[in-house]
Design a binder for these strands. Structure first.
Length: 192
DNA sequence: GCCTGGATTGTCT
DNA sequence: GACAATCCAGGCA
């Protein structure tokens, strides 16, 4: 099976979409990676960019589900989210980590490649910033429609792998303002 | 306009 | 385990 996820998959509450994204496949060009770690963000909690209402940056996140919301942080890193919920909700699921299924060599070269020791495949995209680097996602990818009739270049597909029955659920990482909401989901074995 | 701090990572100790 | 790197969004004057 190799089915692109449709708009209806994403147009639900982020708390429902996030755990079901575990095991799905992120595909961009020749690169494919299985999603193993996600976090949910909603406009009703202060850790979210959308908590304080719509701004130029967060316009995409307030838009229709199934779009990519990519933002720049810490002066050097990008983070990729998938917009969820109804149009105007301001929800998203942050993609924190994937394990490469295809195109690992391309990811490795994008990550700086030859410098230093060889990087194990599963370490190539095991963080939000690294994931974006490996899949070449930056601000130009912000607002891409994953469900567009014509492939926008980045999609999420279901290859038949079921989400883990008992994902590890923890508070989110790196949040300072926030609340200890257990809105982070991790695949127990990383689908290894 | 200026100022502050961040949904991180890599490197050094 | 600690911290520097580095740029931009958002808040405030």
């Amino acid at each position: 099976m190799n089915r692109r996820l449709g708009r209806s998959f994403f147009a639900r509450d982020a708390l429902d979409v996030a755990p079901e994204l575990l095991g799905k496949v992120l595909a961009a060009g020749a690169c494919r990676g299985r999603i193993v770690e996600v976090e949910a963000y909603r406009s009703d909690e202060p850790a979210s960019h959308t908590f304080r209402g719509r701004t130029p940056r967060t316009t995409v996140m307030f838009g229709p589900a199934g779009h990519l919301y990519v933002y720049f942080t810490y002066g050097m890193h990008h983070c990729a989210n998938i917009v969820t919920g109804a149009d105007g909700d301001g929800q998203a699921v942050l993609l924190r980590a994937v394990t490469p299924l295809a195109g690992a060599d391309v990811m490795r070269s994008r990550r700086g490649g030859a410098a230093g020791r060889p990087v194990a495949d599963r370490r190539l995209a095991d963080g939000p910033g690294k994931l974006c680097q490996a899949f070449s996602l930056d601000r130009t990818a912000n607002g891409l429609d994953l469900c567009a009739r014509r492939d926008a270049g980045v999609t999420v597909v279901d290859d038949g792998t079921a989400p883990p029955e008992q994902p590890i659920v923890t508070p989110r990482i790196g949040i300072r303002m926030a609340t200890d909401l257990p809105w982070r989901w991790v695949a127990p074995d990383g689908f290894r």
